[in-house]
Nucleic acid binder design. Structure first.
Lengths: 150, 150
DNA sequence: TGACAATTAATGTAGATACATATATTTGCA
DNA sequence: TGCAAATATATGTATCTACATTAATTGTCA
């Protein structure tokens, strides 16, 4: 549906104003698709993001700060996110020997197993993006990168 | 900056996976631009959205439900949002005579004045979207609409 | 008419988030 | 060395958000 219909606004000042709103709206749309996808596994989008980052480093551990840098949403309290994941048994943490300010986090076997399970359902999510063909998806990616600048 | 650099991930499975993440990231990027723009006026993005919807109807009032339908982020509790705005003196509310379940909301003169003030700074926001020329902005809008599909 | 369903708004609550601050450790340099 | 600045993580707090539930009113139809 065109954004005009989604929010019952029949015209915008210009393409830029529309883009701003369209971008907010579509961001929300994607957020919800992902939240729905993760809900059965009791994970939030942020927790999932952390787990995927950790899988990318596995079997190495990685500091809290390095996780933050790699996150899509660079929020401040990865500490508490990791705390939740530890309670659920998906990560381990231990103080770094060389720099005792740092805390290294690693994904557990259970964490890896959970991600594998979630990945199996990935096609259902990708399905929702099939209104664009691969060239259009690439075009959109390029425009988004360009929008955010140099 | 390309999304790969923003989150230090050097490759994606395919354009669709990248698109998902790029869209989340860019949505967040826009959200922050707008939040920063509104912060000096003590408004959240949601409150601003409500006020703009009300200005669009002014001098008519509009029900809480109609506001929800028109919001970019169709969250459940417009009641509480309106409550905040009323406390600040930017809206009035009164029970609808014909249907006493409904509560009609209208923007006040102060609310209008605030929006005008905020609008004056709008060019600074649009500036941040100038990495795309108008045709590219339109192209992006069309792709976003198409992505969300029928 | 009268009972039940549907609509509209408000509220209760747990959890998430933003923002500021605290704590511990390391670094750099006089 | 010793002390201030910088870095890394954790915590306190108010606010926001999602989700479920409640309460009031209106619509529907046997």
């Amino acid at each position: 549906m065109k954004i005009e219909e989604e929010i019952k606004q029949n015209k915008f000042e210009d393409e830029y104003q529309k883009l701003m709103i369209n971008q907010l709206f579509t961001g929300k749309w994607v957020t919800e698709i992902i939240a729905d996808h993760l809900k059965p596994y009791g994970l939030t989008s942020q927790q999932y993001n952390v787990l995927r980052i950790l899988r990318g480093q596995h079997p190495q551990a990685i500091s809290v700060n390095s996780i933050t840098i790699r996150m899509i949403d660079k929020m401040s309290n990865v500490s508490r996110l990791v705390d939740k994941l530890k309670t659920k048994g998906f990560v381990n943490r231990r103080v770094n020997h060389d720099d005792r300010r740092q805390v290294d986090i690693e994904i557990t076997e259970e964490g890896l197993k959970l991600l594998n399970q979630i990945d199996k359902k990935q096609p259902e999510v990708k399905q929702k993006f099939q209104n664009l063909n691969p060239e259009e998806a690439k075009q959109l990616n390029d425009l988004l990168d360009k929008l955010r600048g140099q």
